[in-house]
Amino acid sequence: MSRLDIQPELVCDLLVRFLREELHSAGFSRAIVGLSGGVDSAVSASLSARALGAENTLSVLMPYRTSNPESEAHAKLVAEGLGTPTRRIDISKMVDGYVEPEVVNDETRRGNVMARCRMTVLYDLSVDWGGLVVGTSNKTEMLLGYSTQWGDAAHAVNPLGDLYKHQVYQLARYLELPPEVIDKAPSADLVAGQTDEADLGFTYAEADELLYRMVDERFDAEELVAEGFDREFVRKVAQRVVRNQYKRIPPVIAKLSRRTINQDFRYLRDWGK
């Protein structure tokens, strides 16, 4: 048993309650999830279907012309398995309308544009559907900053943000999601053949073990090396966590008044709900 192992039934129950209560208190009974064909969005959609009913969860597939066709096939498999209504929006024209005339060839920039186009579609459809956008970012990728700010990282509520990738997999198996989705190599699918782990230079399993000790158990660098982690790996991951803090908090506001939003004007988002 890994120290990261969770009780999936207990976690599922809590997250279903979380989605139900946070959406209901905001005045919503419907949700919308962007299905990528990957395990994170499959788990988010499945939790949402349990919390609100499959008929109240809209799955949105948003392929780009160079996306791996397998991604869409897997997303369909998930939506069909859950029985959610589904929309398919091809973002190719939307993305190309900007990247072609501007000659954006850098893969990271193109990937970010795709992620932000998907966000634009989700937030627009959320008005038509009358539901909130449910997030799909897990704790591992949030800590590593492996996401596009205002892109895939944009959402109203996030059931997965306190679960490491290992724990998302556990939940996916508990939720009996299709094995094709669980067993494949994770990929942002922004570039053909891309995998997350090749991008990052280490595996999620390695990152999870390190981050759990670093963040949850507060081991310092020397203690992590003593636990058997490579010093350079520890340094690299710690640096990513620090560098990407800006993606995890609201933008910084220049303080002028006696009462500044989020500094000394402090209220929960659930204020008045």
Binding site: M1, R3, D5, I6, Q7, L10, V11, L14
Partner: peptide
């Protein structure tokens, strides 16, 4: 609060 869902315990 309800915290800690590790598999080594039962419940939170």
């Amino acid at each position: 609060p309800a915290r800690g869902a590790e598999a080594s315990v039962t419940g939170f």
